[in-house]
Computed example of a mutant assay.
Amino acid sequence: MFGITEYLTDEHRDCDELYAKVERLVSEGRWQEATEAFRKFKEETLKHFQKEEEVLFPEFEGRTGIVMGPTQVMRMEHAQARELISKMEKALEKKDKKAFLSVGETFMILIQQHNMKEEQILYPMCDQHLDAPEVVHKMESL
């Protein structure tokens, strides 16, 4: 059974790969394929956020009593990421390569820093304080 860190870090890598595919397709002007790939990227990224916001963060906060700490920052960054995903989607609909790639670059900077904080700080804290198999099972059930 995976620990929380391994499970969610693998999802980060999967989402990164999905985004890289979208970016490549947009760069090549393959709009139909890019739109399909973007839908998958968006779906997986938002599902990952949902797992954290509906399962992981509440479990961590309930167990540790820490509610104004890392989970609050992660939720704020999820909101910023959702806003950037929405802007990328609009650029994609307009077939605006320059706008898509520009917003995409901002998104990647945000998400890489965000993921690093989760992977190096929050997830290990969760593995330390929570029943990892139980939490992973709950996230899988969403």
Results as ranks from 00 to 15, higher is better:
F60A: 02
E54Q: 15
G62Q: 05
K117S: 06
E89Q: 15
H78M: 07
H78S: 02
K98E: 15
M125H: 06
I66E: 15
L130F: 11
S102L: 11
F49M: 05
E52D: 08
I66Q: 06
M116L: 12
M68Q: 14
M125I: 06
F107A: 04
H48D: 01
A81N: 00
K97V: 07
F107P: 03
V73W: 07
L46I: 12
I85D: 01
G69Q: 02
D96M: 01
L56R: 09
M116C: 07
L101I: 01
F57Q: 11
K97T: 14
E43T: 00
V55R: 14
E77G: 03
K47Y: 09
K42Q: 15
C126Y: 03
K117D: 07
Y123L: 10
K51S: 10
D131M: 06
E61S: 08
C126M: 12
R75D: 02
L101M: 05
E59V: 01
E43L: 01
L110C: 07
H129S: 12
L130S: 04
K98M: 11
E83H: 06
K95T: 01
A79T: 14
Q128R: 15
I66T: 05
E61A: 08
G104Q: 01
P58S: 03
L122I: 06
A81H: 02
K90L: 09
L130V: 04
M68V: 08
E77Q: 11
T45W: 11
S102D: 14
L84N: 06
F49W: 03
D96C: 07
F57Y: 15
E93I: 00
G62W: 03
P58G: 04
G65N: 03
T64I: 02
K42Y: 10
E53Y: 09
Q112D: 13
L110A: 09
Q128N: 13
L92Y: 08
L101H: 10
H114S: 07
V67L: 01
K97M: 10
M76P: 00
K97L: 08
F60W: 14
L130T: 00
M88K: 09
P58W: 02
M108T: 13
H114F: 03
S102I: 02
H48E: 00
H48F: 01
K87C: 00
N115R: 05
Q128P: 06
Q113E: 14
E59D: 12
G69R: 00
F57G: 04
Q128V: 05
L110V: 00
E52I: 04
E54W: 13
N115P: 05
K98W: 09
E59T: 05
T106E: 14
G104N: 02
R82I: 09
L92H: 07
L130G: 10
L130A: 06
I111K: 15
K42N: 12
L122R: 02
T45R: 14
M76A: 13
M108E: 14
V67T: 12
S86N: 12
V103K: 10
E93K: 15
E44M: 08
D131C: 08
K51W: 04
Q80W: 06
Q50Y: 11
H48S: 04
P124L: 07
K117F: 00
K94Q: 15
A79I: 12
L56Q: 10
E59I: 02
